[in-house]
Design a protein around this nucleic acid. Structure first.
Lengths: 210, 210
DNA sequence: CCGCATCCTCATGGATACTG
DNA sequence: CAGTATCCATGAGGATGCGG
């Protein structure tokens, strides 16, 4: 797009910075973790290399992304500035809004399980955590994602050896539907494989929307 | 853009619906009020008529916008579906994120004061309302916008004759900066013209971020 | 290999003119 | 008024090249 809207409106000015095609998906990748050029290519299936370069330059010039030197001191790593990381809020809003688009399933689309590290916190946000704490693992394509509910809130991270109360195996649409509150465990029980303490799973999933 | 990302990711699927140029600005206009084609043209300076028609068709097919018959039964009025209206949340997030882009002022960009009806609630959101209530008017280009703070929250609407505790006259960048909490009344007092009870103005503006 | 830069093709966007 | 039609400029996407 490139062309400016020339409107003194916050939405228009925000879109002049992040509204170009691929831009918010680049930010999504960098919200998961700082990444190198090659990792971004792999995390953004279908992006043209010239476009990725252009967009990274644009975002850097706008103050959303910064280039850092990797630990080896030679190669470049792209990371979000604090202002860029603040895009998490509107991105999470769009993810919540998109829930009706996700229940129809992947339909052959690419899927990276790291994307759940962004989507699950977004979908759990606004849910009141229960008094009792619980930690469950979500198993997707063999990858394990840890969801920990405490009275303070729900945290989602890659599993790193912490002891889990239960492990849930299900397909991504089911997991996203449960997280969005569009499905309940009772509705889809036969599609969910629970290994461990089912009560802990319900502790996490039964939290109500506020 | 039109081209699909083909990623099973909520953000990607959301952007396939509302990521095209102009789409979110059309939604912004319809968040203010349902509108006819001509009103949309006027509210979206620079949009080409063929693009507006295309985008309205796209949004209608996606279930974001619906065409209604006007009261006269002949002409069409465009309005948001409930799902389309739910875009208010991510749009408000983008507006909050854009605050640093607004302080530099309009710089000749178009400005419609109705846009404040979207921006001000977004910028006031997350502020804790004071115990005492107050209603002030913001005067922009002679138009009066009413901001009412109660313990329950802050409401923004066009002024419709309600009694006001005070009226604030200031340029849009100052008003947006105050609403975003980037400026304080003390910092910019000489740029703000207060008619009425200044304490009421402070009651509204001094609310702290949570 | 990685990290781009260049080239080419075609779809999309933008401005204007025109029509039911 | 509410769009279509047309034409042109731009941007997206894919392939390839190339220095480190």
């Amino acid at each position: 797009m490139g062309r400016n809207y020339r409107q003194y409106c916050g939405l228009a000015r925000a879109l002049e910075v992040v509204g170009d095609r691929w831009n918010l998906l680049i930010v999504r990748e960098l919200l998961i973790a700082p990444a190198r050029y090659r990792q971004l290519i792999e995390g953004l299936p279908g992006v043209a290399t010239n476009l990725l370069t252009d967009r990274l330059r644009d975002l850097e010039a706008a103050g959303v992304v910064e280039r850092r030197l990797a630990e080896d001191g030679a190669t470049v790593v792209y990371a979000l500035t604090p202002w860029g990381a603040a895009l998490r809020e509107p991105i999470e809003g769009l993810i919540r809004w998109s829930a009706p688009l996700m229940v129809r399933g992947p339909e052959g689309d690419h899927f990276h399980d790291e994307w759940l590290l962004i989507a699950l916190p977004a979908l759990f946000a606004g849910r009141i955590s229960p008094e009792s704490s619980a930690a469950i693992g979500l198993s997707v394509n063999g990858q394990l994602i840890q969801v920990q509910a405490t009275p303070a809130g729900i945290e989602v991270s890659p599993h790193e050896g912490r002891e889990l109360d239960a492990i849930v195996r299900a397909e991504p649409p089911i997991i996203l539907g449960l997280a969005a509150g569009m499905l309940t465990l009772d509705n889809v029980h036969e599609l969910v494989d629970i290994d461990g303490d089912e009560a802990a799973v319900r502790t996490v999933l039964s939290a109500q929307r506020s």
